Simulated assay, not measured.
Amino acid sequence: MADSDLIKLYSGRILELAASIPHQGRLSAPMGSAKKRSPLCGSTVTVDVVVKDGRITQFAQDVKACALGQAAASVLGRVLVGKHRAELEAARDSLRAMLKDAGPVPAAPFEGYEVLIPAREYKNRHASILLPLEAACEAMIAAESAGA
């Protein structure tokens, strides 16, 4: 990757998001948890959730990822509380389509993923970007399976 490509990919906004990830850490008593890892780059994201009436009421994430994965976790952390599984799955599918198929930016409140449009060209980065939403969806399923 050329230096100019790196500058384009790692914009100031992406780096700002990566430096300010909301809800970092782990919950002491989650109802559901999931850990996702990208085999290509080794990035990992663990998500813990507490769910009430089908919506996330508490959330924490442990993010060990590149700046793009961290930025994706930051976008997610700003909007996840209060969402139900269908919203998360729609956002995940939309983000995947945005990256892989040049689809539109995910709908509100997930439109913050627009900052990651430059990553479309870098397929080896897609898995890291998708990890936070994938882990959140799996954590939600785990919570529902536990009776949430």
Rank of each mutant, 00 (worst) to 15 (best):
A60T: 07
A72L: 11
C66V: 08
K83Q: 12
V81K: 08
S74A: 14
A102R: 13
L99N: 03
L116M: 12
S43Y: 03
K123W: 09
L116W: 06
H126F: 08
A65Y: 00
E134A: 14
S4T: 15
E16V: 10
L27D: 08
L80S: 05
Q61V: 11
S20P: 03
C41M: 07
G147E: 06
I117A: 15
P39Q: 09
G77V: 02
G147W: 05
A73N: 06
I21Q: 01
K35Q: 13
A90M: 12
S20R: 15
A65C: 06
R120H: 09
R55I: 08
Y113I: 11
S94N: 13
H84Y: 09
G12E: 10
T57M: 10
R55P: 03
C66G: 06
D101S: 10
A107D: 15
V115H: 05
S38E: 10
I21R: 02
G77Y: 00
P106Y: 09
P104A: 15
E144S: 02
V50D: 06
H84M: 04
R92G: 03
P104Y: 11
F59Y: 13
G77H: 03
A2K: 13
G12M: 07
E121W: 05
S28K: 13
R78T: 14
A73S: 15
G82M: 09
I21V: 14
A18C: 09
D5V: 12
